[in-house]
Design a binder for these strands. Structure first.
Lengths: 127, 127
DNA sequence: CAGTATCCCACAAGATACTG
DNA sequence: CAGTATCTTGTGGGATACTG
């Protein structure tokens, strides 16, 4: 499965810092801007806006202006975005299922690096 | 499916600029450093090293020193990494399958933005 | 061959304040 | 409420050169 430049770039946009969480939240149900802000831990309005615009541009979410009183804005997962749900879930599942394993691996790795006697690299030793 | 901070961070590390391509390449077969360099378009040794270390630390690949003459280094997918293959493929498939749709969506989005008369934003108009 | 070492810059993103 | 505007910093990553 070869992936070209465009593909990699798309993945970057779909999997940047907040996108995944946003997508996940919107797969559940439509949300308002400030709803999302609360849902995500400590995202600044600027970052959230950028993220939402990117996702909208890529067609996986929709920005809907509700003709309520007063006017409100709502973000929804798009049909295209919906087709991403399954792959996403699979991945999120994997991360959830293997977090402990990965943590363990990291500890082992760091241990090994710290423990290499006679060759202790400067950037590792001391405080 | 709620994803905590650790989970998001792990995803970041697994899906940074080069990791996916590396993982994909190594799922195919083990590779040497310079093999990977050639396989990936224009990656600098520094970036590749960083990427490989990260993946190794997370336990999804293994760095193997071959006792050949002269000594060589080889990178392999680990058993843990192998369990990522399926989810990864699913995702790569999705990207491949929907690249055109996404491109179209982007064009529409940009068109819409450029076409809003009477309100043309400075950062869009002119050269 | 398999990396390190430096220098540098672009850009993501945080903090904070302001607005239609 | 749903953002935009500035300012600033951290860091990923490119370019380039060097090394065991």
């Amino acid at each position: 499965m070869e992936l070209d430049d465009n593909g990699r770039q798309l993945l970057d946009q779909l999997f940047d810092k907040w996108s995944l969480l946003v997508l996940d939240a919107l797969c559940d149900r439509p949300r308002r801007f400030n709803e999302l802000r609360q849902h995500l831990p400590a995202v600044t309005p600027k970052s959230l806006t950028a993220c939402l615009r990117r996702l909208e541009r890529n067609g996986v979410i929709e920005r809907v202006i509700l003709s309520t009183e007063p006017v409100a804005v709502e973000y929804r997962i798009s049909p295209l975005g919906r087709t991403l749900q399954a792959p996403l879930q699979t991945l999120l599942r994997w991360v959830g299922d293997h977090l402990n394993t990965v943590e363990a691996s990291r500890s082992r790795y760091d241990q090994r690096r710290a423990g290499v006697a006679g060759e202790t690299p400067q950037h590792v030793r001391a405080s």
